[in-house]
Computed example of a mutant assay.
Amino acid sequence: MEMIKQYIKNQSLLMSDPSNVIIQSTTPIEYLYLPLDVILEHVDEHDLWKSISYFLMHVTYRFNEYVKTNSGISTYQLICNLLMALNEEDFETRATVSAAKYILDRTPMSRCGVMKMLSSLNKGGYIVIKRGLLIRINKLPEQY
């Protein structure tokens, strides 16, 4: 176990600065903060390495998908991708989170630019937004 602790402390393969990692829940959660030593001991005692490796594979897959859909693309395409992602969220999220907030929480774009683009898409009939909530995506144009 000591070797694993040293590896985790000395390596930055998964994240360069864990203090910059933000995890945001869209549903109520319960959590517990434990020191790394306690977590590693628990994993060893209960032979949870397989579960952790599956979890890390899932996180890596999701991160890879995020990078593919959100890197090196136009602002318009990024907004389209996020509108599609919002459309695939559970009903509670779609009914409580505005399209603008959903996009702004996930990008460094300006509120003005996002609102302008959403308004234009709504006026053009490409999407239906009521009271800020995404109701439906009809067909998004190829270019903005």
Rank of each mutant, 00 (worst) to 15 (best):
residue 84 M to C: 06
residue 58 H to Q: 09
residue 87 N to V: 02
residue 44 D to Q: 12
residue 59 V to L: 15
residue 97 V to D: 01
residue 112 C to L: 07
residue 139 K to R: 15
residue 60 T to W: 02
residue 80 C to N: 04
residue 37 D to C: 04
residue 76 Y to T: 01
residue 22 I to Q: 05
residue 80 C to T: 13
residue 134 L to W: 08
residue 40 L to V: 08
residue 79 I to P: 00
residue 88 E to A: 15
residue 19 S to I: 06
residue 106 R to Q: 12
residue 113 G to T: 15
residue 122 N to V: 05
residue 94 R to E: 01
residue 64 N to K: 14
residue 69 T to N: 11
residue 21 V to K: 05
residue 137 I to Y: 05
residue 77 Q to S: 15
residue 121 L to A: 00
residue 129 I to T: 12
residue 108 P to K: 13
residue 64 N to D: 14
residue 89 E to D: 10
residue 75 T to W: 03
residue 14 L to E: 00
residue 128 V to S: 13
residue 87 N to K: 12
residue 117 M to S: 01
residue 70 N to K: 07
residue 13 L to I: 14
residue 42 H to M: 05
residue 121 L to Y: 03
residue 35 P to M: 00
residue 38 V to G: 00
residue 110 S to H: 11
residue 102 Y to Q: 01
residue 52 I to V: 14
residue 77 Q to V: 09
residue 88 E to G: 12
residue 113 G to E: 10
residue 87 N to F: 05
residue 19 S to M: 11
residue 104 L to I: 09
residue 55 F to P: 00
residue 88 E to S: 14
residue 133 L to F: 15
residue 44 D to P: 00
residue 79 I to C: 04
residue 30 E to S: 09
residue 52 I to C: 01
residue 123 K to N: 07
residue 122 N to M: 08
residue 39 I to Y: 10
residue 135 I to K: 13
residue 69 T to F: 08
residue 85 A to Y: 05
residue 100 A to F: 04
residue 45 E to A: 05
residue 100 A to P: 01
residue 38 V to Q: 12
residue 101 K to H: 12
residue 121 L to M: 10
residue 22 I to T: 11
residue 83 L to G: 05
residue 85 A to M: 07
residue 109 M to D: 02
residue 20 N to D: 07
residue 9 K to F: 15
residue 88 E to Y: 10
residue 115 M to C: 08
residue 84 M to S: 13
residue 125 G to D: 02
residue 33 Y to D: 05
residue 74 S to G: 15
residue 99 A to T: 06
residue 67 V to D: 07
